[in-house]
Computed example of a mutant assay.
Amino acid sequence: MDSNELIRETYDQVAPSYDQDEADQVLRRRLYWFVYESLTWNAVAAVLPEGRSLRILDAGGGSGKYGALFAERGHHVTVLDLSPGMLEQAKARFAQRGLLPRAAFEVGTIVSLPFADGAFDLVFCEGDPVSYCTSQYREAIAELCRVAAPGAYVVLGVDNRQSYFLGALESGKKAEAMDILLTGRATCPYGLPVHAFTLRELEDAVDAAGAEVVEIFGKPILFREMLEALGAARGSGFDPWEARQEFLALQERIAHEGYTTAGGHLQVMARRR
Rank of each mutant, 00 (worst) to 15 (best):
P129R: 00
L222K: 12
E225L: 10
A233V: 11
V44Y: 07
Q89T: 06
V123F: 02
T109G: 06
S63M: 03
P240E: 01
R146D: 00
D204E: 15
Q267F: 12
G231I: 13
Q25M: 12
R102C: 07
A68E: 08
R30G: 04
S63L: 09
L202S: 00
S163G: 06
A45E: 15
H265D: 04
Y137L: 06
S163A: 15
T261L: 15
Q162E: 14
P193S: 01
Y164S: 06
K174Y: 11
G263A: 04
M226E: 13
T187G: 06
M1P: 04
F238M: 00
Q267N: 09
P49G: 10
L6N: 05
D121Q: 02
R244H: 10
E225V: 12
D128N: 15
R185W: 11
L169C: 15
H256F: 06
Y190H: 14
A104I: 06
E225Q: 13
R55A: 02
L99M: 13
R273H: 13
L69S: 10
R30K: 14
A209R: 07
G64F: 03
E176P: 10
Q245P: 10
Q267Y: 12
A95L: 14
L250V: 13
L248S: 07
G231Q: 02
V47S: 10
R273G: 04
L27Q: 15
T40I: 13
R200Y: 03
H256P: 06
G61L: 01
D12Q: 01
Y32R: 09
W33G: 08
D204R: 14
V123W: 07
V194Y: 03
S83Y: 07
R271D: 05
A71F: 04
V26N: 15
A149H: 11
Q89C: 08
V213N: 08
